[in-house]
């Protein structure tokens, strides 16, 4: 099973949201990491055949997904970024409706819906209307509907948005157990989401993949560029202006700074072991304000 992306481009006017991407996805969990506006959502819409690429092709097991048509949709599960719902439907009814669209038989649909509601922790509230749900509950319902047809290709656009830490852990476990013999692609700008479950990471910036690889391989790209040093509290503001700073920890009169920089920033700076977050900061600090 493979999903092959070849020279994929999506242009809005003169703006290239997805810029000549090529990649081959096989079984496993892929984390699509990128700042807002990197083109993650656009790429996923192209993969789901709900937007036409400007140029390039996507093929599933050697056949263009557009030719595959409904047979491709039969193996596809998708959670859109801003996923809609019918406010007056109950969680159960919503899943039954989605099951009908996904072609599940009536009896199986009921059983499968209950099973998934249990897995995402919504079994107790299955007969409550969706409009009474919190953001996290809606998100979990969205994850459940994507998995209804036991898809071979699961595409999740920012699935952990709105989830609290406990729900995130549960989500990771769910995906890990679900992903056997499947292609799972999940986008996020939250580093820790992919750190634990993604076998491969695709780093996306301005419509291009700037790095792909296993998490620990890819971290090596910032080897020697992460520094830690202790400075007086008063110096912090001026350093913040000058350097790309990750963590900051205040200890009494001094602050320990984690600085991402090509060269040694300060005399007393020492190299530190890099993590994914450093990688993220290294690539995206110039374009994103809010990092979690």
């Amino acid at each position: 099973m493979e999903l092959r992306i070849e020279n994929l481009t999506k242009q809005y006017g003169s703006f290239l949201a997805v810029n000549d991407l090529s990649a081959v996805l096989t079984c496993g969990v892929y984390g699509l990491l990128g700042a807002n506006g990197a083109g993650k959502t656009t790429l996923m819409r192209l993969l789901c055949d709900i937007q036409l690429p400007t140029t390039g092709t996507i093929s599933y097991d050697g056949q263009d997904i557009r030719e595959y048509g409904d047979r491709y949709r039969n193996v596809l599960g998708y959670l859109p970024q801003d996923f809609g719902y019918y406010p007056d439907f109950t969680a159960m009814k919503f899943l039954l409706y989605m099951s009908a669209i996904k072609g599940l038989s009536k009896g199986y649909a009921r059983q499968r819906s209950l099973e998934l509601l249990d897995e995402v922790g919504l079994l107790q509230v299955r007969d409550k209307k969706i409009k009474t749900f919190s953001g996290g509950m809606k998100q979990r319902l969205g994850i459940a509907q994507a998995m209804l047809n036991d898809p071979k290709i699961l595409i999740l656009d920012e699935p952990t948005a709105g989830l609290d830490p406990k729900e995130r852990v549960r989500f990771r476990n769910l995906i890990s157990s679900f992903s056997r013999n499947k292609i799972v692609l999940l986008s996020t700008h939250i580093v820790s989401d992919v750190e634990y479950i993604a076998g491969d990471i695709l780093v996306m910036k301005k419509g291009k993949f700037i790095h792909e690889g296993k998490p620990d391989e890819i971290i090596h790209t910032v080897d020697g560029k992460v520094w830690e040093c202790r400075v007086a509290n008063g110096e912090v503001p001026s350093l913040e202006m000058k350097y790309n700073i990750g963590n900051m920890r205040t200890e009494g009169e001094t602050t320990i700074l984690r600085i991402i920089c090509e060269t040694k920033p300060l005399e007393n700076a020492v190299n530190a072991a890099p993590n994914l977050e450093d990688l993220y900061l290294y690539y995206f600090s110039d374009e994103e304000e809010h990092i979690i």
Binding site: R45, C48, D49, I50, D70, R71, R73, N74, L76, G77, Y78, P80, D82, F83, G84, Y85, Y86, M98, A100, I101, K102, G103, Q145, N149
Partner: peptide, 18 residues
């Protein structure tokens, strides 16, 4: 308007039966 199009159009019956 309510962004259900993405869900319907990615289901096997979305484009024909539904």
């Amino acid at each position: 308007t309510i962004h259900m199009d993405a869900l319907i159009l990615t289901g096997i019956h979305g484009r024909k039966k539904c």
